[in-house]
Design a protein around this nucleic acid. Structure first.
Lengths: 229, 229
DNA sequence: CCAGATGATGTGTGATCACAATTGTCGGCC
DNA sequence: GGCCGACAATTGTGATCACACATCATCTGG
């Protein structure tokens, strides 16, 4: 079970507070889809896996609940990784299709040659994972690529919105991509994006990012419709 | 000091958990601008004012920090109501100008005659507050009006995004509007909005909401520029 | 052999205590 | 009279305990 490997997500020797470290660990695990939707978790179990008392876990989890990355089931009040309804996934797609192209446009005009180089590297490791059929590696690299872009925009509010949206899509995305296999994964628009960044062309960057996201989310929307039937 | 009246925000006799009640109380107080930006607060003080132990307050506050409605100062790690930079306010304006018209458009096609009646009533109380020069009453009524619309959209994700954005703008809005007085407050587009709802016209509703928000946020942007000088 | 009651376990929630760090406040000194 | 240092109060963080409730296992009675 995935939960056991959690402690590897803990940043070691950090001077940040425990609940921040726990939050980071859980957030990363969630966006990378370590937890499948519907997975139930518990404070004490997580605390045990992370070698901390339940206290910091409570605060980290409270924050994740606020970001809809976790939920308390109304019936038993027990903790769980949320499943996505078709309606909610549709809203997520719309929201992502607005914020993330916006971030790409902002980042493009501020792009530096260094950033372009970093993006090329990230995209290389992504392609390697793809060719090896490594879904986990693909998701990790894809996440790294996108957020390298978003960080470069220096737009905190939008950045956090994107982060929250990925937090919600992560678990479901992992399930879908696992089922599809890397062969059917969307041919991403990262090359167009890198080109737009090199040229500092905001509108091309915006459009490339929009297409990248829409294709990915379309896959998930199809999957959720299929699952409903 | 505003903090003292906090207990009136607590929903009495509710069977919800304490931290939820505390959260609701603080959230409402923040969106209505009871706390000025920069105001420092403390867990034990809030707990005392709300007649609960510090424990539920910690969880409520943790959630509000996640939503950027409160912040921990990096230096002291002490709790504070955040101030808005011009850049952040700009992002808030952009985000609100996207989500809230979206919500209005969705709600418009689902509009019922009952909703239209409710909106008319809310708008009446808003106008009364305006004519009396009652800034607090205006903000309360305006908040109620908008979220009556957003609730009708039945789009949870967008709704929560709007809620979070209001949470962040609330404290600053109160300061600005207090300085301006109700005379200079933006002539809202609520009548157009109500008309669009009666006709179930999504695009007119979207445009009216967009203009409503942009005018309000423009006032705040001017204020923040003035304050910077 | 199976169904229903009963105890054991695990759950989130809240209270209380301990601790290190920061802030605020007095008193005394120059 | 104004500044500085020691002491007291307050802060957020974490750990531990208690409790009500839900879930699950076991055992008993038919």
């Amino acid at each position: 079970m995935a939960v056991e490997a959690l402690s590897s997500y803990l940043s070691k020797g950090d001077d940040a507070s425990y609940h921040d470290q726990v939050y980071d660990a859980l957030a990363e695990a969630l966006t990378e889809g370590v937890f499948p939707p519907g997975q139930s978790v518990s404070l004490r179990t997580l605390a045990g896996r992370l070698n901390v008392s339940p206290m910091p876990v409570r605060e980290a989890v409270r924050r994740l609940i606020a970001e809809k990355a976790l939920e308390l089931q109304p019936s038993n009040k027990r903790l769980r990784v949320p499943s996505l309804s078709e309606d909610r996934l549709h809203q997520l797609a719309k929201a992502r299709s607005w914020v993330e192209p916006e971030l790409a446009a902002i980042a493009a005009v501020r792009a530096t040659p260094e950033l372009v180089d970093i993006l090329k590297e990230e995209d290389d490791t992504l392609m390697v994972a793809l060719s090896k059929g490594d879904v986990e590696g693909y998701m990790k690299a894809n996440h790294a690529f996108h957020f390298q872009v978003y960080k470069a925009a220096h737009a905190d509010l939008f950045y956090d919105m994107a982060r929250t949206l990925w937090l919600q899509t992560g678990p479901f995305m992992r399930v879908v991509f696992n089922k599809l296999g890397t062969v059917q994964l969307p041919r991403d628009h990262h090359q167009e994006l890198i080109g737009a960044f090199a040229a500092r062309d905001a509108e091309t960057a915006r459009k490339a990012m929009a297409e990248d996201i829409e294709e990915g989310m379309d896959l998930m929307l199809e999957a959720v419709k299929f699952q409903a039937a």
